[in-house]
Simulated assay, not measured.
Amino acid sequence: MDIILEGIIKAFQLLVSLDGEVLGIALLSLKVSGLATLISLVLGISVGTLVALNTFPGKKILVSVVNTGMGLPPVVVGLFVSILLWRNGPLGFLELLYTPTAIVIAQSVIATPIVMGITIGAMQNLPANLRLQILALGATRVQMVWMLVKEARLPLMAGVMAGFGGVISEVGASIMVGGNVRGYTRVLTTATVMETGRGNFDIAIALSVILLLFCFAINIVLTYIQQRERPR
Protein backbone atom coordinates (compact mmCIF):
# COMPACT_ATOMS: atom_id res chain seq x y z
CA MET A 1 0.00 0.00 0.00
CA ASP A 2 2.87 2.39 0.76
CA ILE A 3 4.24 1.98 -2.78
CA ILE A 4 0.83 2.69 -4.30
CA LEU A 5 0.33 5.75 -2.11
CA GLU A 6 3.79 7.03 -2.99
CA GLY A 7 3.02 6.52 -6.68
CA ILE A 8 -0.23 8.51 -6.45
CA ILE A 9 1.55 11.35 -4.62
CA LYS A 10 4.34 11.23 -7.19
CA ALA A 11 1.79 11.49 -10.01
CA PHE A 12 0.29 14.70 -8.64
CA GLN A 13 3.77 16.10 -7.97
CA LEU A 14 4.72 15.50 -11.61
CA LEU A 15 1.51 17.10 -12.81
CA VAL A 16 1.69 20.13 -10.52
CA SER A 17 5.38 20.72 -11.24
CA LEU A 18 4.72 20.44 -14.99
CA ASP A 19 7.62 18.03 -15.44
CA GLY A 20 8.82 18.52 -19.01
CA GLU A 21 9.60 14.89 -19.80
CA VAL A 22 6.33 13.58 -18.37
CA LEU A 23 4.30 16.22 -20.19
CA GLY A 24 6.09 15.36 -23.42
CA ILE A 25 5.31 11.67 -22.96
CA ALA A 26 1.68 12.41 -22.11
CA LEU A 27 1.17 14.76 -25.06
CA LEU A 28 2.74 12.27 -27.46
CA SER A 29 0.41 9.57 -26.12
CA LEU A 30 -2.61 11.79 -26.78
CA LYS A 31 -1.30 12.82 -30.18
CA VAL A 32 -0.62 9.36 -31.60
CA SER A 33 -3.68 7.72 -30.03
CA GLY A 34 -5.94 10.60 -31.05
CA LEU A 35 -4.71 10.51 -34.64
CA ALA A 36 -5.02 6.71 -34.76
CA THR A 37 -8.58 6.95 -33.42
CA LEU A 38 -9.45 9.59 -36.04
CA ILE A 39 -8.11 7.38 -38.84
CA SER A 40 -10.02 4.40 -37.46
CA LEU A 41 -13.23 6.46 -37.39
CA VAL A 42 -12.90 7.49 -41.03
CA LEU A 43 -12.16 3.93 -42.15
CA GLY A 44 -14.30 2.06 -39.63
CA ILE A 45 -17.50 4.07 -39.93
CA SER A 46 -17.37 4.43 -43.72
CA VAL A 47 -16.53 0.79 -44.48
CA GLY A 48 -18.72 -0.51 -41.65
CA THR A 49 -21.70 1.45 -42.95
CA LEU A 50 -21.03 0.22 -46.49
CA VAL A 51 -20.93 -3.39 -45.31
CA ALA A 52 -24.03 -3.04 -43.13
CA LEU A 53 -26.23 -1.41 -45.78
CA ASN A 54 -25.39 -3.73 -48.66
CA THR A 55 -25.89 -7.41 -49.41
CA PHE A 56 -23.15 -9.28 -51.25
CA PRO A 57 -21.61 -12.77 -51.40
CA GLY A 58 -19.30 -13.46 -48.48
CA LYS A 59 -20.76 -10.74 -46.25
CA LYS A 60 -21.07 -13.04 -43.23
CA ILE A 61 -17.46 -14.15 -43.65
CA LEU A 62 -16.30 -10.54 -43.87
CA VAL A 63 -18.26 -9.61 -40.75
CA SER A 64 -16.72 -12.60 -38.97
CA VAL A 65 -13.25 -11.39 -39.97
CA VAL A 66 -14.05 -7.91 -38.65
CA ASN A 67 -15.40 -9.33 -35.38
CA THR A 68 -12.24 -11.41 -35.03
CA GLY A 69 -10.19 -8.28 -35.64
CA MET A 70 -11.92 -6.58 -32.70
CA GLY A 71 -9.90 -8.84 -30.43
CA LEU A 72 -6.68 -8.70 -32.43
CA PRO A 73 -3.66 -8.97 -30.05
CA PRO A 74 -1.55 -5.77 -30.21
CA VAL A 75 1.70 -7.76 -30.28
CA VAL A 76 0.53 -9.52 -33.45
CA VAL A 77 -0.21 -6.15 -35.02
CA GLY A 78 3.18 -4.88 -33.88
CA LEU A 79 4.90 -7.88 -35.41
CA PHE A 80 3.34 -7.52 -38.86
CA VAL A 81 3.68 -3.72 -38.95
CA SER A 82 7.34 -4.11 -37.95
CA ILE A 83 7.89 -6.59 -40.79
CA LEU A 84 6.24 -4.22 -43.27
CA LEU A 85 8.29 -1.23 -42.09
CA TRP A 86 11.53 -3.12 -41.53
CA ARG A 87 14.60 -1.98 -43.45
CA ASN A 88 14.26 -4.84 -45.92
CA GLY A 89 10.46 -4.97 -45.74
CA PRO A 90 7.95 -3.91 -48.41
CA LEU A 91 7.65 -0.41 -46.92
CA GLY A 92 11.16 -0.14 -45.54
CA PHE A 93 12.07 2.61 -48.01
CA LEU A 94 9.73 4.95 -46.11
CA GLU A 95 11.99 4.69 -43.03
CA LEU A 96 9.05 4.88 -40.64
CA LEU A 97 10.06 2.19 -38.15
CA TYR A 98 10.77 3.55 -34.66
CA THR A 99 8.92 6.78 -35.36
CA PRO A 100 5.63 8.18 -33.98
CA THR A 101 4.11 7.56 -37.42
CA ALA A 102 4.77 3.84 -37.05
CA ILE A 103 2.89 3.87 -33.73
CA VAL A 104 -0.04 5.65 -35.38
CA ILE A 105 -0.14 3.02 -38.14
CA ALA A 106 -0.10 0.12 -35.66
CA GLN A 107 -2.71 1.69 -33.41
CA SER A 108 -4.93 2.45 -36.41
CA VAL A 109 -4.83 -1.23 -37.36
CA ILE A 110 -5.87 -2.10 -33.80
CA ALA A 111 -8.70 0.44 -33.54
CA THR A 112 -10.24 0.18 -37.01
CA PRO A 113 -11.81 -3.31 -36.58
CA ILE A 114 -13.25 -2.21 -33.22
CA VAL A 115 -14.95 0.84 -34.72
CA MET A 116 -15.97 -1.07 -37.84
CA GLY A 117 -17.50 -3.96 -35.90
CA ILE A 118 -19.52 -1.66 -33.64
CA THR A 119 -20.61 0.37 -36.69
CA ILE A 120 -21.84 -2.73 -38.51
CA GLY A 121 -23.81 -3.83 -35.45
CA ALA A 122 -25.26 -0.36 -34.88
CA MET A 123 -26.36 0.12 -38.49
CA GLN A 124 -27.84 -3.38 -38.77
CA ASN A 125 -29.78 -2.80 -35.55
CA LEU A 126 -31.73 0.09 -37.09
CA PRO A 127 -35.32 -0.65 -38.23
CA ALA A 128 -35.30 -2.45 -41.57
CA ASN A 129 -37.82 -0.08 -43.18
CA LEU A 130 -36.11 3.12 -42.04
CA ARG A 131 -34.04 3.38 -45.23
CA LEU A 132 -37.14 3.07 -47.40
CA GLN A 133 -38.98 5.70 -45.36
CA ILE A 134 -36.11 8.16 -45.70
CA LEU A 135 -35.84 7.59 -49.46
CA ALA A 136 -39.60 7.91 -49.82
CA LEU A 137 -39.37 11.41 -48.34
CA GLY A 138 -37.15 12.42 -51.26
CA ALA A 139 -33.71 12.08 -49.68
CA THR A 140 -30.72 11.18 -51.83
CA ARG A 141 -28.69 8.08 -51.02
CA VAL A 142 -25.96 10.21 -49.42
CA GLN A 143 -28.54 12.01 -47.28
CA MET A 144 -30.08 8.70 -46.35
CA VAL A 145 -26.74 7.30 -45.18
CA TRP A 146 -26.03 10.47 -43.19
CA MET A 147 -29.43 10.27 -41.46
CA LEU A 148 -28.84 6.62 -40.60
CA VAL A 149 -25.45 7.48 -39.10
CA LYS A 150 -27.09 10.22 -37.01
CA GLU A 151 -29.77 7.77 -35.90
CA ALA A 152 -27.08 5.33 -34.74
CA ARG A 153 -24.94 8.02 -33.09
CA LEU A 154 -25.18 6.60 -29.56
CA PRO A 155 -23.59 3.20 -30.30
CA LEU A 156 -21.18 4.88 -32.74
CA MET A 157 -19.91 7.13 -29.95
CA ALA A 158 -19.44 3.99 -27.88
CA GLY A 159 -17.30 2.76 -30.77
CA VAL A 160 -15.21 5.92 -30.58
CA MET A 161 -14.62 5.39 -26.87
CA ALA A 162 -13.82 1.71 -27.36
CA GLY A 163 -11.39 2.47 -30.18
CA PHE A 164 -9.61 5.22 -28.27
CA GLY A 165 -9.46 3.12 -25.10
CA GLY A 166 -8.05 0.20 -27.06
CA VAL A 167 -5.13 2.17 -28.51
CA ILE A 168 -4.12 4.54 -25.72
CA SER A 169 -3.86 1.61 -23.29
CA GLU A 170 -1.96 -0.82 -25.55
CA VAL A 171 1.77 -1.34 -25.08
CA GLY A 172 2.99 -4.28 -27.17
CA ALA A 173 2.64 -2.74 -30.62
CA SER A 174 3.93 0.65 -29.46
CA ILE A 175 7.16 -0.84 -28.14
CA MET A 176 7.69 -3.05 -31.19
CA VAL A 177 7.21 -0.38 -33.85
CA GLY A 178 8.17 2.70 -31.81
CA GLY A 179 11.18 1.41 -29.91
CA ASN A 180 10.40 3.45 -26.77
CA VAL A 181 12.96 6.10 -27.73
CA ARG A 182 13.28 8.77 -25.06
CA GLY A 183 11.93 12.12 -26.16
CA TYR A 184 10.74 10.74 -29.50
CA THR A 185 8.52 7.63 -29.36
CA ARG A 186 8.12 7.03 -25.62
CA VAL A 187 4.46 7.07 -24.58
CA LEU A 188 2.81 6.56 -21.20
CA THR A 189 2.32 2.82 -21.53
CA THR A 190 5.84 2.04 -22.76
CA ALA A 191 7.36 4.35 -20.14
CA THR A 192 5.38 2.54 -17.44
CA VAL A 193 6.71 -0.84 -18.59
CA MET A 194 10.26 0.51 -18.67
CA GLU A 195 10.09 2.04 -15.18
CA THR A 196 8.54 -1.16 -13.80
CA GLY A 197 11.41 -3.16 -15.27
CA ARG A 198 13.87 -0.83 -13.57
CA GLY A 199 12.13 -1.26 -10.23
CA ASN A 200 10.96 2.38 -10.11
CA PHE A 201 7.48 1.45 -8.98
CA ASP A 202 6.61 4.92 -7.71
CA ILE A 203 7.24 6.49 -11.12
CA ALA A 204 5.49 3.57 -12.88
CA ILE A 205 2.41 4.03 -10.70
CA ALA A 206 2.57 7.78 -11.24
CA LEU A 207 2.57 7.31 -15.02
CA SER A 208 -0.31 4.85 -14.71
CA VAL A 209 -2.32 7.33 -12.64
CA ILE A 210 -1.70 10.06 -15.23
CA LEU A 211 -2.81 7.68 -17.99
CA LEU A 212 -6.00 6.86 -16.09
CA LEU A 213 -6.72 10.55 -15.49
CA PHE A 214 -6.32 11.32 -19.18
CA CYS A 215 -8.56 8.42 -20.19
CA PHE A 216 -11.18 9.45 -17.65
CA ALA A 217 -11.14 13.10 -18.75
CA ILE A 218 -11.45 12.26 -22.45
CA ASN A 219 -14.21 9.73 -21.83
CA ILE A 220 -16.13 12.30 -19.78
CA VAL A 221 -16.13 14.60 -22.81
CA LEU A 222 -17.11 11.81 -25.21
CA THR A 223 -19.83 10.56 -22.85
CA TYR A 224 -21.25 14.07 -22.54
CA ILE A 225 -21.40 14.35 -26.34
CA GLN A 226 -23.02 10.92 -26.54
CA GLN A 227 -25.64 11.54 -23.86
CA ARG A 228 -26.55 15.19 -24.41
CA GLU A 229 -29.40 14.32 -26.80
CA ARG A 230 -30.86 11.01 -25.73
CA PRO A 231 -33.66 9.63 -27.89
CA ARG A 232 -37.10 9.74 -26.29
Score class of each variant (00 low, 15 high):
2 D>F: 11
3 I>H: 06
8 I>C: 00
10 K>H: 08
11 A>N: 02
11 A>S: 13
14 L>M: 07
14 L>I: 08
17 S>R: 09
20 G>P: 06
27 L>F: 15
27 L>N: 10
28 L>R: 10
29 S>W: 00
30 L>R: 07
31 K>A: 09
34 G>N: 07
35 L>A: 14
35 L>D: 01
36 A>P: 03
37 T>H: 02
37 T>G: 00
40 S>C: 05
40 S>Y: 01
43 L>F: 14
43 L>Q: 03
47 V>H: 00
48 G>D: 05
51 V>Q: 00
52 A>L: 04
53 L>N: 02
54 N>Y: 05
55 T>D: 14
55 T>K: 13
59 K>T: 12
59 K>A: 09
60 K>M: 11
62 L>A: 11
63 V>H: 03
64 S>Q: 12
64 S>D: 13
66 V>W: 03
67 N>Y: 05
67 N>M: 13
68 T>M: 13
69 G>P: 04
70 M>W: 06
70 M>N: 03
71 G>S: 09
74 P>C: 07
79 L>C: 10
85 L>V: 13
86 W>R: 14
87 R>N: 11
87 R>I: 02
88 N>W: 09
89 G>F: 10
98 Y>I: 09
98 Y>C: 09
98 Y>Q: 02
104 V>Y: 05
104 V>C: 03
105 I>Y: 04
108 S>M: 02
111 A>K: 03
111 A>F: 00
112 T>C: 12
112 T>K: 06
113 P>W: 08
114 I>D: 01
118 I>K: 00
118 I>P: 01
118 I>L: 12
121 G>N: 14
123 M>A: 04
124 Q>V: 08
124 Q>A: 05
125 N>K: 15
126 L>K: 11
126 L>Q: 11
128 A>D: 12
131 R>W: 12
132 L>K: 15
138 G>D: 11
140 T>G: 13
140 T>M: 11
142 V>K: 13
143 Q>F: 08
144 M>E: 15
147 M>P: 01
153 R>M: 10
156 L>T: 03
156 L>Q: 07
158 A>L: 11
159 G>S: 02
164 F>T: 07
168 I>Y: 04
169 S>M: 10
171 V>K: 02
173 A>S: 15
175 I>Q: 07
176 M>V: 15
176 M>Y: 00
180 N>Q: 08
182 R>S: 09
183 G>R: 05
184 Y>A: 13
186 R>S: 11
188 L>P: 00
189 T>Y: 00
189 T>D: 02
190 T>L: 11
193 V>A: 14
195 E>K: 13
198 R>E: 12
202 D>A: 14
203 I>R: 01
204 A>Y: 03
207 L>Y: 05
207 L>P: 01
207 L>W: 00
211 L>I: 05
212 L>E: 01
214 F>I: 14
215 C>P: 01
216 F>H: 09
217 A>F: 11
218 I>K: 06
219 N>E: 09
222 L>R: 02
223 T>K: 06
226 Q>S: 12
227 Q>R: 14
230 R>N: 08
231 P>H: 09
232 R>W: 10
